[in-house]
């Protein structure tokens, strides 16, 4: 099977899955309990790993820029550079990548195992839709939880930069604080935050697509899980470029 064929299958299959997911959201009784469970599983349970990652990113950036810019007397720009980078890019992207790795892999392996043990067939045989029962709560759950995680990631990333800026680089706390709020505009925040809705859809739809396409044995569940995480991460990276451009055009237009 060629790479082109697999790529077209992925885009076509996941698009159809997304279309059916949207259709199923508005059909019949909504699965609130399953959705709340997914919000918990994605949001609350992923919070520590996202917190550690984005805080570390903020700290490392402040340190690197602090060392680099000190040579040119540019240490005063650290609050601006770090907060802007975290809010517009690193917070949303790293939070999404960590969620893709932690949650996307879990979704694929769980759904894949359900396929292997015929639970997905059983849902269908009992006259219900596997998309409604399995996919919808996961897609909606992640669509709600990831932006919330992004907010936390942004705050902690900026806080990480603040701690290093004040503690290690000797910047005045009040100065650092003022510069963050002078630099950041609402549009900066929204352009980063807005991306996470798209990333949430990418992660959850790819994860469910690979899970549902497991055909045989548990060995394939492992392959599907790997493919799901790799595809989501690549999609986040490539998608980030286009979304950045889109939001930039939107900002210019406004």
């Amino acid at each position: 099977m060629t790479l082109t064929y697999r790529f077209i299958s992925l885009i076509g299959g996941s698009s159809l899955l997304f279309k059916e997911t949207v259709r199923q959201i508005f059909r019949g009784k909504y699965e609130w309990n399953a959705t709340f469970y997914q919000i918990y599983a994605v949001g609350v349970a992923s919070f520590p790993v996202v917190m550690v990652t984005t805080m570390s990113i903020g700290m490392v950036m402040a340190l690197q820029f602090g060392i680099g810019l000190a040579k040119f007397g540019g240490s005063l720009y650290i609050p601006k550079i770090v907060s802007l980078s975290v809010i517009k890019e690193f917070g949303p992207v790293f939070a999404s990548i960590m969620v893709a790795a932690r949650v996307g892999s879990g979704m694929t392996s769980e759904i894949g195992s359900m396929v292997v043990t015929e639970q997905v067939n059983a849902i269908q045989a009992l006259g219900t839709s596997p998309i409604k029962k399995i996919v919808v709560p996961r897609v909606v759950g992640l669509f709600i939880a990831l932006p919330v995680l992004c907010v936390a990631a942004n705050i902690l990333g900026v806080l990480g930069g603040f701690i290093v800026g004040v503690h290690d680089l000797g910047l005045d706390p009040m100065f650092y604080y003022q510069k963050i709020f002078e630099t950041l505009k609402v549009s900066d925040y929204l352009s980063g935050f807005g991306k996470t809705f798209f990333f949430a859809l990418m992660i959850s739809v790819f994860a469910c697509y690979y899970g549902l396409n497991v055909k045989v044995g548990t060995k394939e569940v492992g392959y599907a899980t790997t493919k799901s995480v790799v595809t989501s991460c690549i999609a986040i990276m490539i998608g980030d470029y286009f979304l950045t451009k889109l939001f930039w055009l939107f900002e210019v237009w406004i």
Partner: peptide, 23 residues
Amino acid sequence: NEDEMVEIRKQVAYVFQNGALFD
């Protein structure tokens, strides 16, 4: 189609080889 099959599946029960219980 898939929607029409739902009515059929209410009349036809399938007993899976391994139970296929929701774990």
